[in-house]
């Protein structure tokens, strides 16, 4: 273990890398989607340009907006940064990893969502309320599924700390775990629902009546909107990194040497790039579900996670 100061500095750097590369991931998804739809794609860096443009723009607020509306972008981004800080991206065993375990991580996401949903209701328009109501419906069904997946992980590794759990998985080598197959599938579905991708929400839509995430942030503009967009990009990154690191932990640095760290960056980059291609392929083949099919979708996710847990208990523990 390196000197604590170096470790903290590394942790800070990793967090910065995490939040700085989130727009890149979003840009990459757009690219892949465009290619799959036979369209010319914007640059991978387009999300950065969009953010830059929004940061420079003036804020226009609704007359009814309260302080809660104005502070929500900061809170949402803050929770996302905090969540990003505790996820091992390039290396495990950083001091920040111990601040919060994966249940707290879910709590951070819930905190951000709580404020986001409140902000949707603050102006008092029907679109915002609609978005909030739908978001909370999706979230309240996705959260148990997510925790169920987390339980399987933490029961396998007997730890809820992500870093420890990943370290354990790395140590135990390549083991075919039926539990993880189900859990991975379940967690993917949760991630799709939580990050507002198709078939749950259409990130590209601007039809007021069908929106979920966009409905809540309809009244935001300028830097507020930039913060919200950035936060949602970080959220997408969080889920992608979680899936990549839990189910394919190989490549992540376990020592703080320069080589290991560089390899860690390369590995996570490659994993995320591939994962996103998979996501885009899934998205392209699907229409958005009818709103009340979403619970069925999430039930299935929950069931998969439950099956993962059961097969862990039945097939893996009892030996």
């Amino acid at each position: 273990m390196a000197h604590p100061l170096i470790a903290w500095a590394l942790a800070l750097l990793q967090t910065l890398l995490f939040i700085a590369s989130a727009p890149l991931l979003a840009g990459w998804i757009k690219c892949v989607r465009c290619v799959l739809q036979n369209r010319a794609s914007p640059s991978v860096l387009q999300p950065y340009r969009d953010l830059g443009k929004l940061f420079r723009k003036k804020v226009v607020l609704a007359e009814e907006a309260s302080w809660l509306f104005r502070s929500t972008p900061y809170i949402v981004l803050g929770t996302m940064i905090l969540a990003a800080a505790v996820i091992p991206l390039v290396t495990v065993r950083l001091p920040t990893d111990a601040i919060a375990d994966v249940i707290v991580l879910v709590g951070f996401l819930a905190l951000g969502r709580f404020f986001l949903a409140l902000a949707g209701l603050d102006i008092g328009t029907s679109f915002g309320g609609m978005g909030s109501s739908r978001e909370m419906m999706v979230a309240s069904l996705a959260e148990p599924a997510m925790l169920m997946a987390v339980f399987t992980l933490s029961m396998t590794a007997s730890s809820t700390n992500l870093s420890t759990a990943m370290h354990y998985l790395l140590q135990s080598g390549l083991v075919l775990r039926p539990a993880f197959v189900f859990t991975a599938a379940g967690l993917m579905m949760v991630a799709i629902a939580e990050t507002g991708r198709l078939p749950v929400d259409n990130p590209a839509t601007h039809l007021e009546l069908t929106m979920i995430h966009e409905g809540m942030i309809l009244e935001y503009s300028g830097r507020h909107l930039a913060l919200m967009e950035w936060a949602s990009e970080i959220k997408l990154m969080i889920y992608a990194v979680l899936i990549a690191d839990i189910f394919l932990p190989w490549g992540i640095a376990t020592r703080f040497t320069a080589w290991a760290l560089v390899m860690g960056v390369v590995a996570i980059g490659a994993k995320l790039a591939l994962l996103v291609v998979l996501l885009a392929v899934i998205e392209s083949g699907l229409a958005k579900m009818r709103l009340f099919r979403v619970p069925e979708f999430l039930n299935l996710a929950f069931l998969l996670c439950l099956l993962g847990l059961l097969s862990h208990i039945i097939l893996e523990v009892g030996i």
Binding site: E64, S66, L68, V106, A110, R113, F114, A117, L118, G120, L121, D122, I123, G124, G129, S132, M136, M137, A139, S140, L141, A142, E143, P144, A145, M146, L147, M148, F151, M155, F302, C305, L306, L309
Partner: peptide
């Protein structure tokens, strides 16, 4: 663990409920 997942569901529903309470009573 299943009861724990149901506790998670409870927590998430409670959050939904209080978004409703706060949003409808204090906001808008």
């Amino acid at each position: 663990p299943v009861t724990a997942a149901l506790l998670a569901l409870t927590g998430a529903l409670a959050a939904t409920c209080f978004v409703k309470v706060y949003g409808v009573a204090f906001l808008g």
